[in-house]
């Protein structure tokens, strides 16, 4: 599925404030919001050496394959996802299978706190998604040629 997502400035600021609060309250290192197709909408925080766009694309891939896995075992979806490595932990949730919120944190942040604060970010995003200030066109195909055409049109 491809998407075309347009956010006005006020909406962007609202999302950004929610992400800033999340980082302050949880001590997580980074949080990002993306579409199911891997388009990055907002991010806050920083992880050294992390290529944010690549990570967003990979997470989107993991989310989509996990969704298929859920359906294969008779679940509607798996709403939470958690991976723990030696240093890094990754936790993500989705909003109505359209948006993904992912966070990266170390041992200094607590998973329980991350989960509780993630709910608050989700509420803000849910309101944004359901509001009229956002316009999403999920149906249009996007490929390299389309993008080049659009570039020259503009």
């Amino acid at each position: 599925m491809t998407e075309d997502l347009i956010l006005d400035e006020k909406t962007s600021q609202r999302i950004q404030h929610a992400l800033e609060d999340f980082i302050l309250d949880t001590k997580a290192r980074a949080i990002m919001v993306m579409t199911r197709g891997g388009q990055l909408i907002a991010q806050e925080g920083f992880v050294e050496g992390m290529k944010i766009l690549s990570v967003a694309a990979l997470l989107s891939g993991i989310f989509n394959s996990t969704l298929n896995l859920a359906k294969a075992v008779g679940e509607k979806n798996f709403p939470h996802f958690y991976q723990q490595g030696k240093r890094w932990r990754i936790y993500y949730e989705h909003i109505k299978e359209k948006f993904i919120i992912a966070t990266f944190f170390e041992e200094s942040a607590l998973l329980g706190v991350v989960r509780v604060k993630m709910k608050e970010v989700k509420e803000v995003l849910k309101n944004v998604v359901e509001g009229e200030r956002i316009r999403i066109d999920w149906g249009r195909e996007r490929n390299v040629e389309d993008l080049i055409d659009r570039f020259f049109r503009e």
Partner: peptide, 28 residues
Amino acid sequence: VVGKDGIIIESSALSSVDSDLLAAMVAK
């Protein structure tokens, strides 16, 4: 009973919303 990471191990007589919040708070 809560793990040190704020995740509930066992809970009794608390709603899930209260439980998650309380678990996160006490761990923090």
